[in-house]
Design a protein around this nucleic acid. Structure first.
Lengths: 190, 190
DNA sequence: GTCTATAGCCAGATAGAC
DNA sequence: GTCTATCTGGCTATAGAC
């Protein structure tokens, strides 16, 4: 049954996605989330009886799917994996710059804060990263790499992307992402 | 004048370093810091009149210097940059695993949480990353790389290290770091 | 310079009217 | 299912005895 309640739910998830990406799990207060989502406190616990953990877990999963779809969309237009990585980095860097370096990877901050101490969120982050890695590895295999080698490469390409976003936000500069762009090509040997 | 006050100060910085690395800026409460540092509340504000921001800024700076020294120490034994990166990754991975994936990069979580919204901490993180990058670039130049190329490579190697630590903590696995180890060699073309 | 007590505020969560 | 009022507890920071 789709109703107005779903709209409220969606707004809360959207607000959580934004605030969690900008300030992390502990930095994103629920008061800010309900204000940004224009929802009363009660609605939050109606839609997310599991409280903050459930809301953030769902927000991370949605962001994860969005990036997976971004990768799939860009993969359809890229002629090889190197072009795909470049397109992904360009898209993420544009988004980051447009947000004044308040955005980068939507799940990295939570991944670090929750690595120890919150098993539910740690699992969600691991799954999201696993999905992105899988998408890259599939493309590498389609490009002719051996499966085992493809997994290794996909993991390192993802690490390069993630790390460049951390450095770019810390230094408020697009440079680390552009360097990663070039290095990805070197890693892929083309 | 070295006195007992300095010991208290050092304990507080040490406690802040640990807790901030594990849970980030917002996740590391001062109550936990003073408990771990075995110091009363008043001492914290005596030694750090600037409050939490000053304490965390100093903690990040100390951690930054420690890693810089780690790089310098390992560089003295490594025969080339590839060996240096491998040794750095091994050391960080050992530390991470020993801590049950509660540790990784001592400043990454804060870098993400403070990228927007806390100019003081953002600057500290940018400086620390800049110092590590400089140390790697210097070694690359010593190995015969052209300065401009060395800066690019150093930035990407650092991104690869940082990203692999994020993935490793999220997945609670050493694998991402080991993949980065191999890929660093590919990036350096040896 | 060490330490306690507490102010003042905001967090996450809940109860219950409508 | 929407919304308000409120509970409890934790947070950062400060005041002031010793």
């Amino acid at each position: 049954m789709a109703g107005r309640g779903d709209a409220t739910r969606a707004r809360l998830i959207d607000a959580a996605r934004t605030l969690v990406e900008e300030r992390g799990y502990f930095g994103a207060g629920l008061n800010d989330v309900i204000a940004a989502g224009r929802a009363p406190r009660g609605s939050l616990y109606h839609h997310f009886p599991g409280g903050k953990d459930q809301l953030v877990a769902e927000a991370l999963a949605v962001s994860g799917r969005e990036v997976t779809e971004l990768i799939a969309g860009l993969a359809a237009e890229a002629s090889d994996t190197a072009e795909l990585i470049e397109a992904v980095l360009d898209a993420l860097a544009d988004r980051m710059e447009a947000a004044g370096y308040a955005k980068g990877c939507p799940i990295a901050a939570v991944a670090l804060e929750a690595a120890s101490g919150n098993d539910v969120l740690q699992r969600v982050c691991a799954d999201v990263y696993g999905g992105w890695e899988r998408a890259l590895a599939d493309r590498l295999i389609a490009d002719g790499h051996a499966p085992g080698r493809a997994d290794d490469l996909a993991g390192s390409l993802l690490a390069l992307v993630e790390g460049s976003l951390v450095l770019a936000r810390a230094q408020r500069s697009r440079t680390p992402v552009e360097r990663a762009r070039r290095s990805a090509r070197t890693m892929l040997g083309s």
